[in-house]
Design a protein around this nucleic acid. Structure first.
Lengths: 344, 344
DNA sequence: CTGAAAGCGCTTACAG
DNA sequence: CTGAAAGCGCTTACAG
């Protein structure tokens, strides 16, 4: 609870060698004689020495941390992603600097500015909704490798940027869900939920529309319903699905939260999801498996995405010359009861 | 993507003052003249200076980080706790060093050793199951403030320790759930799930037993069923509840995961939770509200616990003399359909 | 009010 | 194989 910390100088004095020798032993150099090494190691243990990595990093002009900035840790998708990042960074001897933004771009700026002062070897950023690429560019500067996960900030000129981008295969995922509903005989299928400006929503809508058109169907404007990507708002906007001229029999939802909300909203209208109306989600959050009915959705393996992001950023930190990359992560359709309604 | 970073020396040269003056401006000292300050600030902006907090910390012998070690980030309870910690640390100008252990005590030792090298101002530790207080004491040393969250490692002599402890009010929570079932007329109530060695399970069992005895009922040995604290194992062990001489009509479960597993297991036996058998959980994870039936449980507000832990550790970092404290956080009973079965 | 000098805990050429 | 010296980027008495 007090007292100076033990330094290399203490160890050097304690066993009659120079600080340089202690440092060589600490770093596992082959130079020191075996006897010297043993003597130093005993002294390290005896005094309870703890390496000061900040001092070493300063001298070596390197960094042993990577910053991870997450828009919403209480979303299990991002929590799993964070767990994957930390796992891979830890295995590589790096430490994770965590920052959470609560979906606020202003807070995100502050958090990033603070993290930058800690000289991270790289930044993994899952941007807050409404993030602006220009503001981000200002805090992040041009020296640190950056990987943007999951959604695109506005005003980023990717071609001129040194930022990596890693996203789910939103387009293909939505297409898989749509084709699944088409195969079960549905023809009037809505795309429900999400903010149309967000990049992930755009991509999912696109995959949905392409799958529809590939079957010769043209999605009607009334089949696109916007909502906040939350259960509550989705439930509240359920009615919008039933005002169009040709009422849908199924909906591809923006994500699982929206799908669960829609199922609640359907229930309130006396309709049972999976029975009177088919529903699919996106993300495969843990609740999807236990809802009633269980939710057909797209599994994204966020933990593996986290590991992938961490490995990529470490590679860029090691070799700053390699170019930026756009990565698309696969998704997998999980069929459950919510899409069983066979109305056609 | 390259180039030396800008230092106080660059700024000092760039506007013709000494490094000391730049430092004073950076730290907001009133000493420099307004004109000097303005000149320096313009130069900082012009060159895109980024403060090197590690260097400053080294010189000032202080730390601007707190380590947060979590056993399982993919558990929403801990993810929310982590979000609360990060929120409060960020507001105080500290950065969160994240470490996750995946419930492995060995990995926990490595993670803690690595984090200690980064000289955190304090450590918030949610210990992996099976953690040993002696091993922990070895890595953590005696200089850094430590707050242990949620469960007690074995072999900790709290009276001689400088570690804070923060736990939920497990005993009272289980008593609340038990009394609720008693009020609905149940008399044969089991305590289902959890590992009996874990401190949280012991405390919850105790609260349950006390509430039973307060009503003049003695829990039978067959009413205590151990399981891993997971849905899967709980479902598998459901049968154990139905082998005792006096078969229970209700169960107080160790946590929500166990309760959800028990509800699955009941279903497999043709019994409907909330109808033929009453069930309560613990934690109020998001799934509790959407399961069928919705789960009666104890809300613990993990995010507020996180903020509380962060504030406590920062206070101890500021005032190393204040003593260690055992904190008990309140829990709140949330009544939903799963406990409605009224068999008595 | 400003500047020269020393030092936080390390590492790394460079002598010996 | 080992040691003395310089330096990473900052801050802080101490002179002036």
């Amino acid at each position: 609870m007090n007292g100076r910390r033990v330094t290399v100088t203490d160890i050097a004095r304690g066993c009659g060698v120079s600080r340089a020798t202690v440092s060589l032993v600490l770093r596992g150099s082959p130079l020191p004689a075996a006897a010297t090494r043993a003597k130093v190691e005993a002294e390290l243990k005896r005094q309870g020495y703890v390496y000061n990595r900040a001092a070493a990093n300063l001298r070596q002009r390197r960094s042993s941390s990577v910053a991870l900035v997450i828009n919403d840790l209480s979303n299990p998708f991002f929590a799993d992603f964070a767990a994957g990042v930390d796992e891979a960074l830890g295995a590589a001897g790096y430490v994770t600097l965590l920052g959470s933004t609560g979906e606020s771009p202003e807070r995100q700026q502050r958090v990033l500015a603070s993290l930058m002062e800690h000289d991270p070897a790289g930044i993994i950023l899952s941007p807050a909704e409404g993030s602006d690429g220009v503001s981000l560019g200002q805090v992040l500067g041009v020296h640190v490798p950056v990987l943007v996960f999951n959604r695109e900030p506005s005003h980023v000129r990717w071609s001129a940027s040194h930022w990596d981008y890693l996203a789910l295969d939103n387009r293909r995922g939505a297409a898989l869900a749509t084709r699944h509903l088409l195969e079960r005989g549905h023809r009037r299928i809505a795309f429900f939920g999400g903010h149309a400006e967000s990049s992930s929503c755009r991509d999912r809508r696109r995959g949905y529309a392409e799958a529809m058109r590939a079957t010769g169907l043209e999605p009607e404007p009334g089949w696109f319903v916007e909502t906040a990507p939350t259960r509550l708002d989705a439930a509240a906007r359920t009615a919008s699905l039933f005002t169009s001229r040709r009422i849908p029999t199924a909906a591809v939802c923006y994500n699982d939260a929206v799908a669960l909300g829609l199922m609640l909203g359907l229930g309130a209208r006396g309709l049972a999801a999976g029975h009177d109306f088919a529903v699919t989600g996106f993300d495969d959050i843990p609740e999807a498996a236990v809802s009633t009915p269980a939710l057909t959705t797209l599994a994204t393996d966020p933990r593996a995405r986290g590991r992938q992001a961490a490995e990529r950023i470490l590679e860029r930190a090691r070799r700053p010359d390699i170019g930026a990359v756009r990565g698309i992560a696969p998704v997998r359709l999980i069929i459950r009861a919510s899409s069983e309604a066979n109305i056609a």
